[in-house]
Design a protein around this nucleic acid. Structure first.
Lengths: 145, 145
DNA sequence: TTTACTGCAAACATTTTGCAGATGT
DNA sequence: ACATCTGCAAAATGTTTGCAGTAAA
């Protein structure tokens, strides 16, 4: 769970202004249990009359992505989505294809695996991405009720 | 290396017609050493006067993707790209961020790793994606000349 | 008071679609 | 012959940008 305050604090620390739209977006993003598309975010903001433009939403998402507070995902469907996440450490996501809830995965051995592949293929790696898709335990349980 | 013939054979087997545009695209795709964007593909087709429309290119890429002859990648930059690949077995790609050359990676232990994560998180996985980015040995070598 | 930020609207990029005609089988 | 494909052009998406005004620090 990512809290609004953490996002705002990070923005402030990085020298960004805490504007009304940014506060609103931070709250919205923090309230999301899982991933969301830019469009969903804007829609939700509009529904709640928060007065946040599409352009501002994109601009904020960009800033937040840079700070590592949000990450961009590419769903199997091809659509782009974002997830709030803890900045700092490199990590990966596992996302529920039903409810969208997502969890962060720390190392788990992927780094080692990537290093091994690099050695085998002769590539000098400078990045990788692992995304896992499936049903979270809740959705999985519901399916059999 | 993926050959034109293989692509055409797969299309035919799947019941698709071997039209002129499809033959042209198959050849273009097979000639690519690495990944390519839809736009690059169309541009190349136009340069060679192959008479392939943008719409047709997209439609063909869709078909080829369905058949597993091509896969969609999401580059770190955010742009979409495609790579020709062997259909069948689940695999992943390692792509060179300089020349675009890409190689397929067979299992390498990712499946086991994914299974372990599934167990730990309680998710029932139905898919995952691993993409590795870096410099291939050739580009890496050139950098130090 | 200064500079970052926002809204607006237009521009852009990318992918999809409807339809009439061309073409593979 | 007949269904599948293609080209064309328009539409639907998704994202970015310039600029003048607003607001945070």
């Amino acid at each position: 769970m990512v809290e609004t305050m953490k996002i705002l604090a990070a923005l402030e620390t990085a020298g960004y202004r805490l504007t009304t739209p940014r506060r609103a977006l931070a709250a919205l993003i923090a309230s999301r249990p899982g991933h969301f598309t830019a469009d969903e975010l804007v829609g939700e903001a509009r529904r709640q009359r928060l007065g946040v433009t599409r352009a501002t939403a994109f601009r904020s998402l960009e800033v937040l992505t840079e700070l590592g507070l949000v990450e961009r995902l590419d769903m199997p469907s091809g659509e782009h989505a974002f997830v709030a996440c803890d900045p700092g450490g490199h990590h990966h996501h596992i996302v529920c294809s039903s409810c969208g809830r997502s969890a962060e995965i720390q190392d788990s051995g992927i780094e080692a695996l990537a290093a091994r592949i690099a050695r085998q293929t002769g590539y000098r790696l400078d990045g990788h991405r692992l995304e896992l898709y499936g049903l979270c335990s809740t959705c999985n349980a519901e399916q059999y009720q």
